[in-house]
């Protein structure tokens, strides 16, 4: 409401005058040269990534850190597996996670089930995502899908699907709080007051909670057809 008049009562309005003498605003020069200000500092690449360090400790026998800084430990299909000879000894590789299926039990069928239930294998499985929230009956969606856009594909529009997937969110700001200030108001809610209740109050509160739960239950699971059948609604 930009064109509204100032609603603060006159007495409480900030007195504006002699501001300069009251408090000066401190400034600090930029830490880096202004010409470089735009260029983002390259992310510090440690000489050895945590993942490699971990492997170095675990596989003492010499997995040299060949300068690959892959931090993802859950993609084990690169060189950071036990050495090649070990693999050959152990038998077939799993197609999905590229790890050897250990045939220790003898029977291959049990071995594969054991392997399939291993975390390493499951992590490598392709995940299905929950379907998009978009209403399938929408006219606009019909148009877009007729040109090959799939709402569940998790892709945007554009020649290569590089577009943003969700609209940009609007954040309303109607105060003059400066950039980077953490408002205190947001911190307050978590501090719930502790109070002592007697038996009666507890009973009352319990009833209230139950009623609330029931209302929620009804709201979420209500079915018009069923209610009509039951003679309600």
């Amino acid at each position: 409401m930009s064109d509204e008049e100032d609603s603060t009562p006159r007495g409480q309005q900030r007195i504006f005058g002699a501001g300069i003498t009251r408090k000066t605003i401190q400034f600090v020069p930029a830490a880096i040269a202004p010409t470089q200000a735009t260029q983002l500092a390259p992310p510090n690449v440690p000489s050895i990534s945590p993942g490699d360090r971990y492997l170095n400790i675990v596989l003492k026998d010499g997995m040299p850190t060949e300068g690959h800084h892959s931090t993802s430990t859950e993609v084990p299909n690169h060189e950071k597996r036990p050495s090649q000879q070990q693999l050959e000894l152990r038998g077939a590789l799993c197609e999905i996670c590229n790890l050897p299926i250990e045939a220790s039990e003898g029977k291959t069928s049990t071995a594969s089930t054991i392997h399939e239930s291993s975390i390493a294998h499951m992590v490598c499985l392709t995940h299905s995502h929950p379907p998009s929230h978009l209403d399938r009956s929408r006219q606009g969606l019909k148009y877009l899908s007729s040109y090959g856009w799939d709402p569940d594909s998790r892709e945007g529009l554009g020649a290569t699907g590089e577009g943003i997937r969700a609209p940009i969110k609007a954040k309303v700001k109607n105060n003059t709080v400066g950039l980077g200030v953490k408002l205190k108001g947001t911190k307050k809610p978590p501090e719930a007051k502790l109070e002592r209740l007697d038996a009666k109050q507890i009973r009352k509160k319990d009833m209230e909670d139950r009623r609330k739960r029931e209302r929620l239950q009804e709201m979420l699971y209500r079915n018009d057809d069923v209610e009509k059948y039951l003679g309600g609604g």
Binding site: L134, R138, Q139, G140, L141, Y143, L144, Y147, G148, W149, P151, G156, L157, G158, A159, E162, G163, I164, R165, A166, P167, I168
Partner: peptide, 20 residues
Amino acid sequence: LVHFDLMDPPAPETLMRALE
């Protein structure tokens, strides 16, 4: 409109709204 090569393609929902 899906594959029209905009420099920054809009969100699908925005385009759907416009079509509707």
